[in-house]
């Protein structure tokens, strides 16, 4: 598939969209495709990949805690763009760090901040503070039960849904 420069066909003069089927454009060779599929279907490969992910969890948890320090810093000066940026990093890493509730709460905060930014409105400090507190408690907890925090994540998701509904109605 590699090795040569490939060009896109011009826009059709008819104005109607043209379809370019696989094969007309380069795809994986059938030999590579078969080998890749064989490797991916091998339970040993899946197990090895799952091991790689799980071995990374502790390192990712450390990274999440660093981002929590940064998001708390952004919250002190109440900079919604910076809060979103750090919360987005947290939601991206938390799941693979084993911090499921942290990821869910961070995702809710991102949804809230994104909707407000799109609507050109200021986020409520109390909503942000509630989320950041829950994110930090869930991520810093040493015990599994507090770390999971599903009930908190559910309640905050309901709060975000309610706030987003208010924005949509306005």
């Amino acid at each position: 598939m590699s090795g040569r420069k490939i060009k896109v066909p011009p826009v059709p003069a008819s104005g109607l969209a043209a379809k370019i089927p696989p094969g007309v454009y380069p795809v994986f060779s059938s030999a590579d495709a078969m080998r890749l599929m064989r490797v991916m279907r091998d339970p040993e490969t899946t197990a090895q990949a799952a091991r790689i992910i799980s071995e990374k969890a502790e390192e990712l948890r450390g990274a999440v805690l660093d981002y929590i320090d940064k998001v708390e810093e952004a919250a002190r000066v109440f900079d919604p763009a910076a809060i979103y940026e750090q919360a987005h990093e947290i939601r991206g890493l938390a799941g693979n760090a084993g911090l499921i509730a942290t990821g869910r709460i961070a995702n809710g905060l991102c949804r809230y901040l994104d909707a407000l930014a799109t609507a050109n409105r200021e986020p409520e400090q109390s909503v942000v503070a509630l989320h950041l507190d829950a994110i930090a408690r869930a991520a810093r907890a040493e015990d599994e039960a507090t770390r999971l925090g599903d009930a908190v994540a559910n309640e905050l998701a309901e709060l975000v849904d309610k706030k987003l509904a208010e924005i949509n109605q306005a």
């Binding site: 011009p10 379809k19 890749l36 599929m37 992910i53």
Partner: peptide, 26 residues
């Protein structure tokens, strides 16, 4: 995200086994 081995392999398999046509328009 979060990434799972199964999720990643499924996406690669989709590309390898069922490449989609490309569409060209303005």
């Amino acid at each position: 995200k979060p990434i799972t081995a199964q999720g990643l392999f499924l996406r690669i398999a989709e590309i390898v086994e069922r490449p989609r046509p490309y569409v060209r328009c303005a």
